[in-house]
Design a protein around this nucleic acid. Structure first.
Length: 654
RNA sequence: GGGGGCGUAGCUCAAUUGGUUAGAGCGCUGCCCUGUCACGGCAGAGGUUACGGGUUCGAGCCCCGCCGCUCCCGCCA
């Protein structure tokens, strides 16, 4: 079936086989039509539209005809969306990517041959229909479709291709939306025909174009960077590509164009961007694919504020283009510290409050040792009030407790405010003063549920942050928390710690990546108190989704070397092997620079209102990284392995 | 790597405590129907209950294994 170019050229017209086919060789006919300026089509009784040249060419698309076109002879091409055979008259809706139009087949003024062909059509056959546009008779208009006031009275029908019975319906949005995703992925070309999916593809394209136009206006150059790169073991697991011409050596697919874009700054490009494909061999989620797209950009001679302004402008343009929505700028800014303190997340969803409150001082000397003990250990006591969730089930309390335990907590203290009293295993340990502090600060009312975390500051915040989202989900399901679908809360999260400590390996690692510049005044702390060093890193967050992040980079080779060797403790020879070309590049005049990358797939998913980025990627992979349509990844021939000097140790896949 | 959910006709789903020949709607096939747009009417075909074992007189249902899809944790500098 996949004949390739040559095969397709040999058969320019798909139509029922005819005995005199030899005579109708495509080339001959086309030449003759050109030479004699004959009409491309003639009507005849046997074939309806008789071809004298290339296939019938459409005059309009399927969402174009209106009452004003009445009386015109038109040709539509597309797929048979639905047919209604009333025995006498037949209605067939023709669909293309723009919409659909009803065509009518009336046996009283149509050759029997054409009528029979219309009667034999099945869903998703590909046809060309020529006929007269006319207003629909009074009372038969269809307000559900844009072309519902007219119909095309067929005079000729060419079947360009037939279709087998479909594995799942394409014409019914409700039914198709419920179809097992496995099936949709296997027959992705059918899934993509659905108007909902076509809409997503179209919106994605529009946003990509808007991005390019905006960044071009701002003076950016679009530069492509290699996808055959080399392995840089820090960070995400990489896809590795063997290299035949260099036996034993491997390329790696880039996790992002990070190093190339910084080197483009050294190269004097000043403003770079790319809709860059990135690859990460990590386990997947609804919002993660092994290959994904970033709006990646980098600028020279700028500060953080310049990035904020630029991205706010870009997102403003994108929202206007995609949704015709004006989003207000500048965006809110939260420090990492404040985001964790108030929301327990570095990507807070600020569309609802339910903020974390601090009770460290209240419980410093408490008789309840779980709280006072945590404070004595240098920790904090934090609490969250979930309004109206006092009726949480045992299972829900257990689920939240399990969350707390997964962060290392021993349990989850709670108080239910029910029937005018505080119901809790811990309430007997609380003094009146402590209760009063909770009452006031959390504004407690009948029906509330208070949840506590007592631990080191970061852990306590993270526990309640997770529980806050869990509780919000349940309140949403119960209709107690309503968030309008068109609400978008953008914010910048800034002032992240440059470094985090890895207890298991007893070493510091970069919170963002090792090229992130410290806040200038904190540079002396790098060697003395790494924990206190703030990075010039920023994340852009919308509705609790991390849309992207970036930083001002280190551009001084000595600072970069300090970070690699003294802070991250990477041996000098390894630094040279992995990043030597970068450090060298920085010796030849590196401008101060910084940039950001936005997750393009997530961005489109938000604009399309879908939780899964698979719905906005034409050919996505499953949670295990396979493609159900092409059955990739697949095996290779022994010959290919020999050429690559590779030998398999994996068990043979079935 | 760990945990949860799902897998029954082409599709979406039922099937009582483990009990007769596994059902329905849509789709499909045939016939009928001249204004439908979820067209309508009549008739019909269609099943290795994902797969492999086990328990049982008897398994779609219980147990073990395995495959696939999905969600979450870990992971994603």
């Amino acid at each position: 079936m996949f004949a390739g170019d040559q095969g397709e050229r040999k058969q320019p017209r798909a139509r029922p086989a005819r005995e005199d086919d030899a005579f109708h060789d495509g080339k001959l006919i086309r030449q003759r039509a050109k030479r004699n300026r004959e009409p491309l089509f003639v009507l005849d009784s046997q074939w309806g539209l008789h071809e004298t040249g290339p296939p019938m060419k459409r005059t309009h698309h399927c969402n174009e005809l209106r009452p004003a076109h009445a009386g015109q002879l038109v040709t539509l091409t597309g797929w048979v969306h639905s047919r209604r055979d009333l025995g006498g008259v037949i209605f067939i809706d023709i669909r293309d990517r723009e919409g659909r139009t009803q065509t009518v087949y009336d046996p009283s003024d149509l050759p029997a041959e054409v009528f029979d062909r219309a009667a034999a059509l099945r869903s998703e056959c590909v046809v060309a229909v020529t006929g007269l546009v006319r207003l629909r008779p009074a009372g038969t208009t269809n307000p559900k479709i844009a072309t519902g006031e007219i119909e095309v009275v067929a005079q000729a029908l060419e079947v360009l291709n037939t279709a087998d019975v479909l594995p799942f319906p394409v014409d019914d949005p409700d039914a198709a939306g419920k179809v097992n995703e496995e099936l949709r992925l296997k027959y992705r070309y059918l899934d993509l025909r659905r108007p909902e999916m076509t809409h997503n593809l179209r919106l994605r394209s529009k946003v990509a174009t808007a991005t390019r136009v905006f960044l071009d206006e701002q003076g950016f150059l679009e530069v492509e960077t290699p996808t055959l790169f080399k392995s840089t073991p820090e960070g995400a697991r990489e896809f590795v590509v063997p290299c035949r011409t260099n036996p034993g050596l491997f390329y790696a697919l880039p996790q992002s164009p990070q190093q190339f874009k910084q080197i483009l700054m050294v190269a004097g490009v000043e403003k770079y961007f790319q809709l860059a494909r990135c690859y990460r061999d990590e386990d997947l989620r609804a919002d993660r694919q092994p290959e994904f797209t970033q709006i990646d950009l980098e600028m020279s001679f700028i500060e953080r504020e310049d990035i904020y302004t630029l991205i706010e402008g870009l997102l403003q343009r994108i929202w206007k283009t995609a949704l015709n929505v004006d989003i207000p700028t500048p965006f809110k800014r939260l420090s990492f510290q404040e985001a964790m303190d108030r929301y327990g997340m570095d990507k807070p969803d600020t569309r609802f409050a339910m903020e974390l409150a601090d009770f460290t001082e209240v419980f410093r000397a408490s008789a309840f040792k779980v709280f006072s003990g945590a404070v004595a250990n240098g920790g904090v006591v934090k609490a969250i009030n979930v309004k109206g969730f006092a009726d949480a089930t045992q299972g829900q309390i257990e689920a939240m407790t399990e969350t707390a335990r997964s962060f290392g907590a021993k349990g989850l203290a709670f108080i239910k405010i029910e029937d005018g009293e505080w119901k809790s295993p811990i309430v007997k340990f609380l003094t009146e003063a402590e209760k009063a502090a909770l009452q006031t600060q959390l504004n407690l009312e009948e029906g509330d549920l208070v949840l506590f975390a007592a631990d080191q500051w970061l852990v306590a915040c993270e526990i309640l942050g997770r529980i806050r989202l869990y509780a919000a989900d349940i309140l949403k399901q119960r209709g107690q928390l309503k968030i309008p679908a068109d609400r978008f809360d953008f914010l910048w999260v800034v002032e992240f710690p440059l470094l985090s400590f890895d207890k298991e390996n007893n070493r510091w690692y970069s919170s963002h990546h090792p090229f992130t510049a410290p806040v200038a005044e904190d540079i002396p702390l790098l060697k003395t108190d790494p924990k206190k060093v703030r990075g010039q890193h920023y994340d852009i967050v919308v509705n609790g989704v991390e849309l992207g992040g970036g930083s001002i980079r280190i551009h001084q080779p000595d600072v970069q070397k300090t970070v690699f060797e003294e802070v991250l403790q990477i041996p000098p020879d390894l630094v040279k092997a992995r990043f030597g070309y970068m450090l060298e590049a920085f010796r030849y005049g590196a401008p101060p620079h910084g940039g950001i990358a936005l997750g393009f797939d997530r961005l489109i998913a938000i604009l399309c209102g879908t939780p899964s980025i698979r719905d906005v990627i034409a050919f996505p992979k499953t949670a295990k990284g396979t493609c159900l349509m092409t059955e990739s990844p697949g095996s290779v021939e022994p010959k290919q392995l020999r050429e690559l000097y590779l030998e398999l140790k994996a068990p043979k896949p079935q």
